[in-house]
Amino acid sequence: MKIAVASGKGGTGKTSVAVGLALAAEKSQLLDCDVEEPNIHILLKPNILETEKVEVQVPRIDDLKCNYCGDCAKFCQFNALFVVGDTAMVFPNLCHSCEGCIEVCKQNAIVYEPRCIGEIFIGKKDEIDVIYGLLDIGEALAVPIISAIKKKSIGEGIIILDAPPGTACPLAETVKDVDYCILVTEPTPFGLHDLEIAVEVVNQLGVPIGVIVNFAGVGNDEVYKYCKEKNLPILMEIPFDRKIAELYSNGIHFSLEMLEWKKNFSRLLKKICEVY
């Protein structure tokens, strides 16, 4: 059972929900797919058992074979290759690893070699296996790290994925093969706007959606109206509560101190597992 927890943007309490679900399960895997700003390991402080570099394949040009025809540079849609006079350069950070240049080079001058763009960490906290990744600063492509994280999870039991913020391709990469997607939002115009866009992305991927309203009671009821109209079930409401915020700011999950919430999360988890 794979459940992704997402929201149009960060700061809606998405990570709290993901951690809450993982804590409520007897045994679970928790995947932090926000590789630009992973937070789960800060909240849970898992013991790191294993780290692994994430590599992508990029071309290397053999200057003994290259005749500087420039075909590869002309082909590359991402400007990762530059050929002029008797020089051919590769800009590995621009490469999308499409292998097109290898295909077009008539001299067979191009080979692939690995290049590191970040790291993934596999750790354990009590009964939760925590996997997260970190994109090297200045790198542009998060997707290879996300897929490396997803590959590390063993495909059984409860798997919770904390999706990256935003609605661009890292979100799609995280959600694309999960069984269920929980969208966390807040009852404000910002929350509604971001929810609408997130729903669009997740719908495109054909994944069923449920909504959790965080900071319930602070704003207006537009989010509820929208959910009703779109037939999206509201799975849970978490009220705005200073105690929750204070616990969070100290890195303590509220379900550990406010035990009724642990029950709420396990009930929710059970419900999702039964239906999907």
Partner: peptide, 12 residues
Amino acid sequence: HTGTGNTVSGRG
């Protein structure tokens, strides 16, 4: 922000 190119020719 993202490293730089690797050349193959001695001149670049």
